[in-house]
Design a protein around this nucleic acid. Structure first.
Lengths: 240, 240
DNA sequence: AATTAATGTGTTCTCAGTACATATTGTATC
DNA sequence: GATACAATATGTACTGAGAACACATTAATT
């Protein structure tokens, strides 16, 4: 077995020069947005013949001189212009035939952003927000990746103050509850929801009221300072 | 931006033939065991000059015709002879310089196995169990990987019946509690622990007693049928 | 037979989460 | 301007998991 370990190391060195070990690695970003009470995801038209007419996640190959964690940030900045976004690594997918052009293993990240804060580059009309609930089929294994990310998002939002990345700075409790209901796919009791949220001490009452609403305006809140993490994806930079 | 997408696909195709995109991908396995009230991990002596005298996790490059998820199973079988093990994907690590021999991105898995059930290959004296609490430094970024896996293990054991993979088939509640205390790094109240565990309905009372213990023997239990998953790592095979 | 050191079990308390009803406020309608 | 409407705002009782805590039981040792 010791021999095997040596072989392994030798193989790593050779892999830089031999086709045999050539496996590409990419990142794919599930970019969530929220608008009109709908959870949305940013997709781009696939340009592979195999997937004509299908949409796909935003992704790119990891560059040789780029940290893995840096790649999704780069993709996001290239596509949306956004720099400071919430990003989280979710899972790495590597079935042999998941990419028709060759062997590509991909690490999936999800990101949460406020759609209204930044308009998409107008030059690119192949880039659109899609309602998550309308998505039936995607290119590659991207539907599976999307599903995995949604599940992880659902598991996290009650414990961690992350959904606020999807909302404007000021929001009402009703807006917040709508968002939770949309992500979790369930209806929540208004009184209990308020209690749970206020108990967590995530919010600051701004002593302001909603404007331009049809009925009685609600109070406005914002996320408490210090809770907005740019990313949960930098485990690799943390102290060991 | 549309152009960029085309470039991306072209790049994927070229990457199979060009050195420029040559990034190797490996898997590393954090193989946990438990013996003498100590959480252990299986390590191998590193044979890289850069890491002389240091230990490292068991890993290998992913093969071109091998699903990513299959790689850690192969590594485990090669190293330990074990086939049916609990395996879970944890995180993918890809800092540029994490491997001295070249650019290698690695996906980390952890595994839980019962040390006594299978002796290690005697041929390989560079392969040993180490107490997790004694480990200070490892080769590569393997200490960080280990820490990440331990944290994930801690997060999971109260909700999911997985630690039983570390125990013999029959065990007493005291043994189980010792194991939980060792993994979590805390002391637990015996009465509350029993209540929490029995409430989950994971265990079957075997109506047998411990033998060869110095004092009053305790009852023996086993994991209920149907709860022992071989793996939680096959997300990619699940229904989308 | 007495001692020891473990196993085995029950009660109370706290707190988060759930179920549920009524008062209040601003808008829209007549 | 009075009324209806539709949303916001808030309080109370119930349930169940988890934590704090004390005493009886059993088998091995002396």
């Amino acid at each position: 077995m010791q021999k095997q370990q040596r072989l392994k190391t030798a193989a790593i060195e050779k892999s830089i020069h031999r086709d045999f070990f050539n496996i590409a690695i990419s990142v794919d970003c599930v970019i969530f947005g929220y608008e009109d009470r709908q959870l949305k995801v940013l997709l781009i038209k696939s340009d592979l013949a195999e997937f004509e007419g299908l949409w796909s996640l935003l992704g790119d190959l990891v560059r040789p001189n780029e940290d893995l964690e840096a790649a999704p940030y780069r993709v996001l900045q290239e596509r949306t212009g956004l720099k400071d976004v919430y990003l989280e690594q979710v899972h790495t997918f590597g079935r042999i035939n998941r990419h028709p052009s060759g062997r590509v293993i991909t690490t999936a990240y999800y990101s949460l952003m406020n759609i209204k804060d930044h308009t998409l580059p107008q030059t690119d009309n192949e880039l659109h927000w899609h309602n998550v609930s309308d998505i039936k089929k995607l290119a590659f294994d991207h539907k599976l990746i999307l599903t995995t990310c949604i599940r992880q998002l659902q598991d996290k939002i009650m414990e961690h103050p992350i959904v606020f990345n999807l909302l404007p700075e000021k929001f009402s409790l009703r807006e917040l509850q709508d968002l939770y209901e949309e992500i979790l796919g369930v209806e929540l009791d208004r009184r209990n929801f308020r209690k749970r949220i206020t108990l967590k001490n995530w919010l600051v009452d701004l002593n302001q009221m909603e404007e331009d609403v049809k009925h009685r305006p609600g109070k406005l809140y914002k996320l408490r300072n210090g809770l907005k993490r740019k990313s949960g994806a930098d485990k690799e930079l943390a102290v060991s």
